[in-house]
Write a protein that binds this DNA or RNA. Structure first.
Length: 473
RNA sequence: GUCCCCAUCGUCUAGCCCGGCCUAGGACACCUCCCUUUCACGGAGGAGACAGGGGUUCGAAUCCCCUUGGGGACGCCA
């Protein structure tokens, strides 16, 4: 049977890390069935019924976030707000069938009930005042809400693919509001009607919705519809163990992009946060699509660990195509050093990328480590680097300059051979020779191999930088 | 408070469903060493966990119960 999943965020902010994982699981599940099953579709629905809190900017942030992660959805995104008529129709049908009723309770009465319920240690808040009351007793001039006439005995059961069978006594659940006094549908109603109309077969979402699933199941039953399969995945917690939410540590995916993380690294990390396939850690998207299933999703919440994400990111950077990395780095360099980049910047980065990418765990770090290639001379010198160019270092560098200048061929190997000879002749270590050169060439104490750098920079630029460090030719 | 869910190294997890192969495996982080022109990468090794208590059983990380701890939900928000 073909599978239909959906991701249904509310556009009240950015696409945060928890939402991204939910989207990923839904996408993966659909992809898995599309490629290895009877078909799979992944839909996107924007839950924008709360007009006051929904913004177009947030909707765009969700689109951008999903697109960046590579989680493409089928068809156009659906606006829940625009489907209000269908929601209303469902509620009215229930009303006509006697499965729902009008409730005229005022907000004051409701909060009194809520208080009473808490005081008595009950969960059920609404006492059903208008459930069986004669409509003729309705107070004049009060717009009623429509409530579901939910079963009061027995229990509601959901067979959750992640949580297993979960049961709750119906007496714990009160008659939920379907339509507000102003006639607009509530979330509970909208979700059920939309999921049904969209043909959603599997509802994969955060387990903060687990209790909603009970109410929704009652609604499906009342509407005479088959319930979808539920899969409530555990939430992601912050590094401190507290829940991660928009107000507590959860960052938008664009923040990770800005901090220099690759989408494939984030996806791989998010995938492993709560799902596993034996001891596998590095999992490609293709592999994930093949392997992903809801039965391997864990039931306990996981903490977000930036160190592991960073490590994974380093791996994907090393694997990444040089050209792609150059584009990413150039964009940042142009921003950071406007007008200061050498014309040869891009070419040098491309030539030097193999040595560069081994040493960076984020694109931000890669950019920083790459800047010495891109910036025009004279380059700036860090304090530590300057330390290698004291009297001793400078003297060494001065003696070394002609060795390089006279090198037979300007290649990595030839240059290193020349430096080695020089070091041996002087009875010093290669390392002692390399550091002043590194300082002169990069303005830093850490970099790829100095001979590789000389190769990339070329003869003229290299000697120029040495001269700069020596205070002139 | 009430209801629901969860519980293996610091973190993510394998193992649990179908008890013995577990003196509990892997990954990240950490420590030591090797490689080495710096830093990374890579390689070798180390430290590090079945929350506690009861059962069931010849035998429990694995099954049952309780306790404790954590989380989530209790809106005319989504």
């Amino acid at each position: 049977m073909p599978v239909v999943t959906r991701f249904a965020p509310s556009p009240t902010g950015f696409l945060h890390i928890g939402g991204a994982r939910t989207a990923l699981y839904n996408w993966l599940f659909a992809q898995h069935h599309a490629r290895h099953g009877d078909g799979g579709t992944f839909l996107l629905r924007i839950e924008d019924t709360d007009r006051a809190r929904s913004t177009q900017a947030a909707v765009d942030a969700i689109y951008d976030g999903l697109s960046w992660l590579g989680l493409d959805w089928d068809g156009d995104a659906i606006s829940q707000f625009e489907r209000a008529d269908q929601h209303r129709a469902a509620a009215e049908r229930l009303l006509a069938e006697g499965k729902a009723y009008k409730c005229y309770c005022s907000p004051d009465e409701l909060s009194a009930m809520r208080e009473a319920a808490r005081a008595e240690g009950r969960k059920r808040m609404y006492d059903g005042t208008w459930r069986d009351r004669d409509p003729s007793e309705a107070p004049a001039g009060v717009d009623p809400v429509i409530r579901l006439k939910a079963p009061q005995d027995g229990e509601t059961v959901i067979e959750d693919l992640v949580q297993g069978r979960v049961t709750v006594a119906n007496e714990q659940l009160d008659d939920m509001v379907l339509l507000r006094a102003d006639g607009t549908p509530t979330y509970m109603l909208a979700v059920v009607v939309d999921d049904h109309d969209m043909g959603v077969t599997h509802v994969i979402r955060g387990d903060d919705h687990l209790t909603n699933a009970f109410r929704q199941t009652q609604l499906y039953l009342a509407l005479g519809w088959e319930t979808p399969v539920f899969a409530h995945i555990p939430l992601i917690h912050g590094a401190d163990g507290a829940k991660m939410s928009k107000r507590h540590g959860a960052l938008g995916v664009e923040t990770y992009r800005d901090d220099g993380f690759l989408p494939e690294a984030l996806c791989n990390y998010l995938l492993r946060l709560g799902w596993s396939h034996g001891d596998d850690e590095i999992i490609s998207t293709e592999q994930a699509i093949e392997w992903f299933g809801l039965d391997s999703v864990g039931k306990s919440p996981a903490r977000f660990d930036l160190a592991k994400l960073t490590n994974l990111n380093g791996h994907y950077i090393r694997e990444a195509d040089d050209g792609r990395l150059v584009d990413l780095v150039m964009e940042r360099l142009e921003q950071a050093h406007p007008g200061k980049l050498a014309k040869e910047a891009r070419d040098r980065l491309f030539k030097g990328m193999a040595g560069l990418k081994e040493r960076a765990k984020t694109i931000s770090e890669l950019t920083e480590n790459s800047s010495f290639y891109a910036i025009q001379r004279p380059i700036e010198m860090t304090e530590k680097a300057a330390g290698h160019l004291g009297p001793e270092g400078s003297a060494l560098l001065r003696d070394l300059r002609p060795v390089f200048a006279d090198a037979e061929s300007w290649s990595d190997e030839a240059l290193m051979a020349a430096a080695k000879n020089f070091a041996e002749a002087g009875g010093i270590k290669l390392g002692a020779v390399a550091q002043p050169v590194r300082a002169a060439l990069t303005g830093n104490t850490v970099s790829p191999s100095v001979f590789e750098i000389m190769d990339v920079l070329g003869r003229e630029e290299t000697l120029g930088r040495i001269d700069d460090a020596l205070g002139g030719p």
